[in-house]
Simulated assay, not measured.
Amino acid sequence: MNVLLLAKAALLGIVEGLTEFLPISSTGHLIVASSLLRFDSHATHVFEITIQAGAMLAVVWHYRMRLAATLTGWRSDPSRRQFVLNLLLAFLPAAVLGLLFGSFIKTHLFTPTSVAAAFVLGGVIILVVERRQRQPRTSESDRARICSVDQLSARDALRIGFVQCAALVPGTSRSGATIIGSMFLGLPRQVATEFSFYLGIPTLFAAAGYSLWQHRDALRADEAPLLFVGTAVAFVSALACIRWLIRYVSTHDFTAFGWYRIAFGSLILVTSAGEWISWPAG
């Protein structure tokens, strides 16, 4: 196995782990980073999706006690049963739309310039939602009723699931769509962030599994080290990011990420329009 290719896989693993749970789009960063690194794996799209499983394993590890208690107690504990139901309801909309339109999205939208446009639009939305959060409210009753993910109703979960569908467009950000969308729906920032972590487990494991199965004929044994290195590095970097983000949201908003998205997306669009960087078509 080419050492340089392994180093590129490790760098992409770092990019995945550090961006998966921030509202800045891990897929978008992977597409751009892969282009800059000229990462030419035989199954690049499969690699980019599969290493997301490493980031999800970081969530599983961080919340292992809660998840273990849920698995062993959901039959007898109504709150844990509702939690499982909520995850299923929030997962289904994106799963159905992904199956219906996944091929079209991969063919037409997995390009740096389309990702850049989504970056900018997503950044604007973050700024709008954060500004709305700072405005005085006549009533805090709706937001005050939910203080933890255990208090989410089935209706709340389904609404978050529909919001997550926006993340099917590369560059939108799954975590950004679910966190910012949940806040727009009235959920507190900490609850929105934590539920986004949990929702990522079935969503991204399913995406990785489906991608591997769909492209099983394109996978080669000599590329297994790439997947292993990328996934392992993504796990370590994602675990560090999760712990940092939990502390961050307790005292900060996401305005900085909104401006970052706008600046980064604009940079890609400008370099593409000026032909300073020759971004690949897909």
Rank of each mutant, 00 (worst) to 15 (best):
A94I: 04
L89H: 03
G98Q: 09
A58L: 13
S76F: 03
R38C: 08
E48V: 02
F91T: 10
T72Y: 07
L89T: 07
A53V: 14
P78L: 12
M65C: 07
G28N: 07
F91R: 04
A33M: 01
T107L: 03
A53S: 15
I49Q: 09
I49W: 12
R81I: 01
S35T: 09
A43Q: 06
T72Q: 10
H45Y: 02
F47S: 05
T44K: 04
V59K: 09
A94V: 11
P93E: 08
A68I: 14
F83D: 04
S103H: 15
G54H: 13
L30W: 01
T72V: 07
S41D: 06
A90N: 02
M65S: 12
R80W: 02
A69D: 12
G54K: 07
V96W: 09
P78A: 15
F104L: 14
V46A: 13
L57A: 15
L67T: 08
L57I: 10
G28Q: 01
V32G: 15
N86V: 06
P78C: 05
V59G: 08
M65R: 13
V59P: 09
S35G: 15
A90T: 02
R38A: 12
L99N: 00
S34V: 00
I49S: 07
I49N: 11
P93H: 01
L71A: 06
L30A: 08
R66P: 06
I51C: 13
T107C: 00
G98K: 06
S34Y: 04
F91K: 02
Y63T: 11
